[in-house]
Structures are given as structure tokens and as C-alpha cells.
Nucleic acid binder design. Structure first.
Length: 474
DNA sequence: TGAAATGTTGGGGCG
DNA sequence: ACGCCCCAACATTTC
């Protein structure tokens, strides 16, 4: 007797390799791969515009990967449960498999879906494709969730090596009849005007693009990672973040590829590998925190920040968003973000410190802007990053840690290579003024058309120390 | 995964 | 030769 088809419900696990739900379905029999667009099920954290651009191309790439294995991707829109039930009717499926998400809205919905499917006599199983360690498996000595990275990461490493990733299935058995599918374009994920055209020059969404990025990083950049990762004009980081967010590659695959390289390499590469994997650890930690403290996307983890008197200043916010603050390293970062959907991590820290400390605007304003503009926008990572910058999160930057944009520029972009790439008008200035154009001779400055500083950093620093000083009293 | 202020040290100029 | 001062370099403390 032939078993009934299994539906694989794809969400942010858009790959065929090392995909536990897909593997389980293939073992089971014929497979119906499905993506469901369910607008309104998590209204508050619906993907931003840059993320939707990526999703479109990633789904298209997934369809290609599936077709290479003799299958295809079914695209539908509607409430998740209704849509799954319709698909089950249309295909006579007997089971639904998926890989887990960790946002509270998704967790709640997925639990309900699992329960109703099982009540209807169907098989429903979820798997881990996205993390090295499930958030509920790790506790500190007091049996509580970790709130400090170093002991968290130490505990992770004591768990032993993660499992080896599984290869993609060579062929995926088709169901007796395919259900209807929408055309991907009908989801209207792509922007109506062509602001994202530049993205395609920089990014290659999908499983193949992700694996190429990892391979290139290992070959070209891993050995120098500890130093080069802080230099924003260098290709010193992996740029895997959007691929990881959409699950086009999984952390097990990254882990094992890096370790395989380290095993056969010089000690320098081994320690570089450790430094890189530690960053993967921050991603794990972010998911750990989001799972255990599900309110943190909107509210500070540390309660004494609840009533912090953040400023409201539409002019400041706009200038920051558009890269018009008058501080080159800040403006270069925000312009890089706007043109490419991505910003170098060192620069993310600098622009975040500037928003929160120099402008005294709420970290939630920064988080919202990043959410809409980053192709790698990820609720766990974005929340951790901004609460870190705001000083109100786990293991956060102390209130008195205030980045000086001029010094940071001088330290990590000494020749102004990064700054002038995104602010070409500053090329006209002698290099010595590139991080502090207001010090340049007036005539030279006027010709550039570059704006004067929105605030004076020294004074802004004093203001921030004063505003944050209430922390000390605790 | 800071920066600024303050403290300490040590080489060299000089009386 | 010696002590004194200056100050850069480095270290420590404070915000």
C-alpha cells in the first residue's frame, strides 16, 4: 500500500540540504513542498520591504532547487490553517512537516497548527533546522536562561560537536497530483518602484548563493577574520546573515565547513575559526534570549529602562535614517544600508551608539528602521543588537560606553576608503578631514555640499552621561 | 565589541 | 655626576 503524501511547510528554511523536515518527508513517501503567505498572522513584525525583496528571490531559488530534484514549490496565500487544510484535501496528504521558528507569534501559531492537525488525525512534526542548540535545552547554574554571552557560549561548547549536516535529497518523490500554485509574482513581494535594483548586484539569494558565499569566505577571508572583520571597506566578514535568516544555509553546515577547514590548517586559521564561530554563537544567544524573553522586541529586558526619557525628534531621526548627520562614518553606514540592504557590523554598532547616545532617540526607532531596510532583518538578532546598543539588554554595552564617531572612523577606516565609497562628495576633501569635515577650510567644505554636524559629539556625550546616570543609582 | 581623565614611568635636556 | 623638570608613552581609573 502506498503511503499518503507529506506536506513540507517551508517558512525560513529555504533550502534542500540539511533540511530535517524535508528529509523526514522524503523518507515518508511523496512530498508536497509548500510556502504559505499568511498576511496578518504576525502584523507587528511582518517582513520589511528589503526582506520581502530577498524572500521573493529566495523562494524562486528554492523552486529551482526543488525542480532539480524532480519536485516544485507550491505557493499559496491565506490563513495558515485554512490553507493547509485545503492543501491536504487537494493532495490527500497524511502529514505535515516543518522546521521551527522562535518568535512568540510563530511559536503560538505553530503550536495551534500542530494541535489541530493532530486532532484531525493527521501526522504533524516540527524539527530544528535553524539552531545549533534549541533555546530550552540550555540553562545556567540556577536553572535559568542565560543573560550573559560568555558563560552561555561556554556551555554551548561543552555540549560537544553539533551533528553533521545532511546532504540534499537526490530526488524528491512527486505526489500523484499537484495542487494549484500561485505565481510567485502574485505575492507582490517585490517593490513597485525599482529602489532595490542595486541589490541584485550585491546579493545572490538562495541556497546556491549561500554556499558560494561560505566557500568564498573560507578561501579568501577566514585566516584574516579576527582583524579584517572590523574594517568596513574590506570583504573581511562572511556576509552570510541574510542567507542564515532565510535558512538558505543552516548553522550546522556553516559549523562543519569551518571546522573541516580549521582541522587541516595552521594554528592561526584555527583561532580565526574560533573567532568566527563565536559570532555564530551570538546568533544562537539572540535566539535563546528571544525565546525566553519574548517581550524584548518591543520592551527593554532590564526593567529600569522602561521609563527612560527618550527624546522625540523627527528631524534628528530623519537625518539619521537618510545618512545626513554630518558625521561621515555614521552617514556612510546608513547610506550603505539604504543602497544595499546591509551594513557592516562594526558600523552598525557605531550608528546605533550615535542614535541612542548622541541623539538620545529610542533604540526601538533604530530597530524599526533596520527592520524595514535590512535584507538580513531578523527579530532575534535585531533585538539583541539594539538592546545591546541601548544598554538595556542582556550583556549590554554599559551606559558610559559611547562611541566617538571621529575616533572610530580613524581607527577602522583610516584612509576614508569606506566613507568616500558611500559619500563620494567627500573625495574632494584632503584625507585628514575625511572623518571631521567641519574642521576643513570653509571653501573646501562648501564645495562638497556635505552637511554640518547635527550635534556636537562632546556635548552630546555629556548629555548622554547625564541622562543615563540614573543607572548608577541602582 | 570605548573614551576621556588621571596616574605612572622613564629617557633626555639642562643647570 | 646628579637631581630636577618636561613630556611622551603606557597603564589605570572613571564616566
Amino acid at each position: 500500500m502506498e503511503s499518503k503524501p507529506a506536506i513540507v511547510w517551508f517558512r525560513r528554511d529555504l533550502r534542500t540540504a540539511d533540511n530535517p523536515a524535508l528529509i523526514a518527508a522524503c523518507r515518508h513517501g511523496s512530498v508536497v513542498p509548500v510556502f504559505i503567505s499568511a498576511p496578518g498572522e504576525d502584523e507587528r513584525w511582518a517582513p520589511g520591504a528589503a526582506s520581502r525583496w530577498w524572500l521573493h528571490h529566495s523562494l524562486s531559488a528554492l523552486d529551482n532547487s526543488l525542480r532539480a530534484a524532480g519536485s516544485r514549490l507550491i505557493v499559496r496565500r491565506g490563513p495558515t490553517m485554512d490553507t493547509l487544510l485545503a492543501l491536504i484535501r487537494e493532495t490527500d496528504a497524511g502529514s505535515v512537516y516543518w522546521n521551527r521558528l522562535y518568535e512568540s507569534a510563530a511559536l503560538k501559531r505553530d503550536a495551534q497548527v500542530k494541535e489541530s492537525l493532530r486532532k484531525s488525525g493527521l501526522q504533524a512534526e516540527s524539527f530544528n533546522s535553524a539552531l545549533l542548540h534549541e533555546p530550552w535545552t540550555l540553562k545556567n547554574r540556577q536553572g535559568k536562561p542565560f543573560q550573559v554571552f560568555t558563560p552561555y557560549w561556554k556551555t554551548c561548547q561543552e555540549q560537544g560537536e553539533p551533528g553533521r549536516p545532511a546532504p540534499e535529497p537526490r530526488s524528491i518523490p512527486s505526489p500523484a497530483r499537484w495542487p494549484k500554485s500561485m505565481n510567485l509574482r502574485e505575492l507582490a513581494l517585490l517593490p513597485k518602484i525599482g529602489w532595490a535594483d542595486g541589490f541584485s548586484k550585491v546579493w545572490n539569494p538562495g541556497e546556491a548563493g549561500a554556499r558560494r558565499k561560505l566557500k568564498n569566505f573560507i578561501e579568501d577571508a577566514l585566516a584574516d577574520y579576527p582583524k579584517a572583520r572590523d574594517i568596513p571597506h574590506e570583504a573581511g566578514t562572511s556576509r552570510l546573515s541574510p542567507h542564515l535568516h532565510f535558512g538558505e544555509i543552516g548553522p550546522r553546515q556553516v559549523w562543519s565547513a569551518i571546522q573541516d577547514e580549521a582541522r587541516t590548517s595552521a594554528p592561526q586559521v584555527q583561532s580565526a575559526a574560533g573567532a568566527f564561530l563565536r559570532q555564530l554563537g551570538w546568533r544562537e544567544f539572540a535566539h535563546h534570549l528571544l525565546y525566553h524573553f519574548p517581550f524584548t522586541p518591543a520592551r527593554p529586558l532590564r526593567a529600569q529602562f522602561e521609563k527612560f526619557p527618550w527624546a522625540r525628534n523627527a528631524k534628528f531621526l530623519k537625518a539619521w535614517q537618510k545618512g545626513q548627520t554630518g558625521y561621515p562614518i555614521i552617514d556612510a553606514g546608513l547610506r550603505e544600508l539604504w543602497s544595499t540592504g546591509w551594513m557592516h557590523n562594526r558600523v552598525r554598532m557605531i550608528v546605533a551608539s550615535f542614535l541612542v547616545k548622541d541623539l538620545l532617540l529610542s533604540w526601538t526607532e533604530g530597530a524599526a528602521w533596520f527592520w524595514d531596510t535590512l535584507v538580513d532583518a531578523d527579530l532575534a538578532n535585531n533585538t539583541l543588537g539594539w538592546q545591546w546598543a541601548g544598554g538595556c539588554g542582556a550583556d549590554a554595552a554599559p551606559y558610559f560606553r559611547i562611541f566617538n564617531p571621529v575616533l572610530q572612523g580613524g581607527k577602522f577606516d583610516p584612509d576614508g576608503t569606506y566613507v568616500t565609497r558611500w559619500i563620494p562628495e567627500l573625495k574632494a576633501l584632503p584625507a585628514k578631514w575625511v572623518h571631521q569635515p567641519w574642521e576643513a577650510p570653509r571653501d573646501a567644505l562648501r564645495k562638497t555640499g556635505y552637511p554640518p554636524p547635527l550635534v556636537e559629539h562632546g556635548a552630546a556625550r555629556d548629555r548622554a552621561l547625564e541622562a543615563f546616570s540614573f543607572i548608577r543609582e541602582r
